[in-house]
C-alpha cells in the first residue's frame, strides 16, 4: 500500500466536516436519537457517547505529548505514517460509505446508557461533550502545525501494541469518527 501522507490542513478540513455533521444531528427528535436500529445495536446518541469515551482516553496523552514536542524551526514535509500504524489507521478508515473490518467493541469503550437516562438533558450533555472533545482535537492539530511532532510517541487506548506519533494519533481519531459517522447515517436510514 502506498505511503499515507498526513497534513494538518487535511485533518482540520475533515474534522470540521465531522463536527458540522454531528451538530446537525442535534435537531433530530429524541425518538430518532435514542432508538437502536436492532436490539443489540447502538442508537445514534450511543455512537456519539462512544466517540466521547474513545476521545477521553486520548485527551491527556495528547496534552502531555504536545507539551514535550519542541517548536518547529522551519516548514516540514507532510508526516508519513509508519507501516503498522498505517494498517491500524486504515482499519478504521471507512471506504466510501462502507465500514470495513467490523470488530467487537472492548468493554471500556461501550457507551452503556441506561434507558431511563436517555432524556433531553443527558443527550444535550453528550453533544456538548462531543463539541468540547473535538474542539480540543482541533486545537491540538492547530498547535501541532507549529511543533516538531516527530519526537514524542503516545500509547494508544488499546495499549502498547500500538504507539502513535501525534499526527498518526490524530489521523486514527479522525478515521474512527468518520467510521462512526457512516454508522450514524446507516442507523438514520434504518430507523426513519
Amino acid at each position: 500500500m502506498a505511503g499515507l501522507f498526513i497534513s494538518p490542513e487535511n485533518q482540520i478540513q475533515r474534522l470540521n466536516q465531522i463536527t458540522n455533521e454531528i451538530a446537525r444531528l442535534k435537531s433530530l427528535p429524541l425518538s430518532l436519537l435514542t432508538v437502536p436500529p436492532k436490539p443489540k445495536a447502538w442508537s445514534i446518541i450511543e455512537i456519539i457517547a462512544h466517540l466521547n469515551i474513545a476521545y477521553g482516553l486520548y485527551e491527556e496523552k495528547i496534552n502531555g505529548a504536545l507539551a514535550k514536542c519542541p517548536n518547529k524551526q522551519s516548514e516540514t514535509e507532510p508526516f508519513k505514517a509508519r507501516a503498522w500504524q498505517r494498517f491500524v489507521i486504515n482499519g478504521q478508515r471507512p471506504k466510501g460509505n462502507v465500514r470495513k473490518w467490523k470488530m467487537k467493541t472492548l468493554k471500556k469503550f461501550e457507551p452503556l446508557l441506561s434507558p431511563e437516562n436517555r432524556n433531553q438533558e443527558q443527550i444535550s450533555s453528550i453533544f456538548d461533550t462531543f463539541q468540547t472533545h473535538y474542539g480540543h482535537l482541533r486545537q491540538a492539530i492547530l498547535t501541532g502545525r507549529n511543533k516538531d511532532l516527530s519526537k514524542v510517541k503516545i500509547t494508544s487506548a488499546i495499549g502498547p501494541i500500538v504507539r502513535f506519533y501525534l499526527p498518526e494519533c490524530f489521523e486514527f481519531l479522525l478515521c474512527h469518527a468518520e467510521r462512526h459517522l457512516v454508522q450514524i447515517n446507516e442507523t438514520k436510514e434504518m430507523i426513519s
Binding site: 478540513q13 470540521n16 502545525r145
Partner: peptide, 10 residues
C-alpha cells in the same frame, strides 16, 4: 505567520 484565518468547513 502560518496561522489559519479561515478553515475549510467553517
Amino acid at each position: 505567520r502560518s496561522e489559519l484565518i479561515t478553515e475549510a468547513g467553517h
